[in-house]
Amino acid sequence: MPAVDRRAGDDERVVPVLQHVHSSGSVSVLLPDDHPIVASARESESGELAMMIELADQAPVDLREPIRGLLWITGWLRLLDERAGRARAVSIANTRPDPRLLDVGHGASVLRLNPASIVLADSEGTHSLTAPTFSTAKADPFCQYEQQWLRHLEDSHADVVWQLSRHLPEELRDGRIRPLGLDRYGLRLRVESCYGDHDVRLGFSRVIDSPPQLAVEMRRLIGCPFLSQA
């Protein structure tokens, strides 16, 4: 998920060297030692800066409007000292190894954002989340292979996507229909037309959590008793 840092109350947008969202909702940000934000945090009387982190969820297929959701985490950004920064880098590396973490203490600094507000937005609405709600949220069972599955659907099963169009409002069926998202509740489609883009959710008959259950729900949606799971 690409991310962009934005200084609160300012139009300046900064792409960090690396960012990592922790389960608590806090965010670790890696920036060059000589970056202006690092200097501002070091010189601040409180040691903190008001900051908003914007993370964009990019669709796994090549859409003309590729961003399918945004997460904004607003809070207070604090510069960690070298020892704490290294400890944070090791903690991140345990779950997300990345060679850029080796630069901590060697030209790069770690800053931590403590969240005050978390907002999630997509075509289905905008939701304000508390830090406890965010930290206890469970990953969707399909998150690990959603991208690969949607790309496969796009590249190899155009016939299936066409059959799904029967669930769309009639005025949308002439547009280009693309797979947009998959979760335990249903399949999301993007319709690209000359009148704009429209996102539609095709809900499953029940909450699912496994590929065999997904195959059953896809057979139901396309109105076919058999569907290859290739």
Rank of each mutant, 00 (worst) to 15 (best):
Y185S: 12
L63N: 01
S205A: 12
E124S: 15
L168Y: 11
V90S: 12
I37G: 00
A139W: 03
A59P: 00
G223F: 03
E192V: 01
D174Y: 08
P36K: 02
P97V: 06
E45Y: 06
P99D: 09
R173H: 11
P211N: 00
I37H: 01
L202R: 04
H198M: 11
E43F: 14
S128I: 11
G105Q: 04
M52T: 14
H167G: 07
W149K: 03
L111H: 05
A93R: 12
L102M: 06
E170W: 12
S26I: 05
V29M: 02
D11K: 01
R178Q: 12
H198G: 04
L77E: 01
P66F: 02
S91Q: 15
L180K: 07
Y195N: 14
G85R: 11
L182F: 07
P36G: 05
T74Q: 15
L18V: 00
Y145E: 13
I208D: 02
H35R: 03
R6H: 11
L113N: 03
Y185C: 08
D10L: 04
S26N: 07
H127P: 05
L77T: 03
A230T: 15
S117C: 03
R188A: 10
N114D: 15
I177P: 01
S156N: 13
R190E: 09
Q144E: 15
G105M: 04
S135P: 00
G47W: 10
A215Q: 12
